[in-house]
Amino acid sequence: MGLFSELKLAVPWGHIAAKAWGSQHGFPVLCLHGWLDNANSFDRLIPLLPKDFYYVAMDFGGHGLSSHYGPGLPYYQLNFVSEIRRVVAALKWNRLSLLGHSFGGSVGGMFSCIFPEMVDKLILLDSTPFFLDCNETGNLLTYKRKLIEHTLQMGEFSKKPSRVFSQEEVLHRFLQNNSHVNEECGDLLLQRGATQVATGVTLNRDRRISLPEHSIDFISREQYEHSITKLQAHTLLIKAIHGYYDVRRENDANKEPVHYMVGKLKSALEERFQFVEVPGNHYVHMSHPHHVAGIISSFLQSRDRVPAQQ
Rank of each mutant, 00 (worst) to 15 (best):
H290M: 15
W35Q: 10
S112Y: 04
I16D: 08
R207E: 14
I114Y: 12
V197C: 07
N182M: 02
V181R: 10
S66A: 03
V201H: 07
K19D: 05
F273D: 07
F80G: 04
G294F: 00
C134I: 15
Y55G: 00
H288L: 10
L91E: 04
H234I: 08
E250T: 14
F4Q: 03
Y69V: 15
L124T: 07
V292A: 06
Y245T: 15
Q153A: 14
P307Y: 02
R208T: 03
G64E: 05
S179K: 13
F218A: 07
L171A: 06
I295L: 02
L91R: 08
P47L: 02
M286D: 00
H242E: 13
H214V: 11
Q24R: 12
D187C: 11
F42G: 01
G72M: 05
N139H: 13
N40M: 13
T137C: 12
K264A: 11
G263A: 03
D59K: 02
L265N: 11
Q301P: 08
P257A: 07
D252H: 00
E169N: 12
H291D: 08
R272W: 11
S97V: 02
S102C: 13
K19H: 05
L65S: 10
Y75R: 11
V201A: 04
F53N: 02
G186Y: 02
D206W: 01
E250L: 14
D59W: 01
P50G: 00
G105Q: 06
G14V: 00
T151S: 03
F273A: 03
S298D: 10
R249H: 13
Y283F: 09
G100K: 02
F299Q: 01
R208M: 05
P129K: 07
V247K: 05
F157E: 10
G108D: 06
N79W: 12
Y54A: 00
G193T: 01
S302E: 09
F103V: 12
L98R: 00
N38I: 01
R303D: 15
D120Q: 10
P47D: 01
P289D: 00
V107G: 01
S158F: 09
G155A: 13
K230H: 15
A20P: 04
F273I: 01
S106Y: 11
L269Y: 04
S67Y: 06
P47A: 03
R207Y: 08
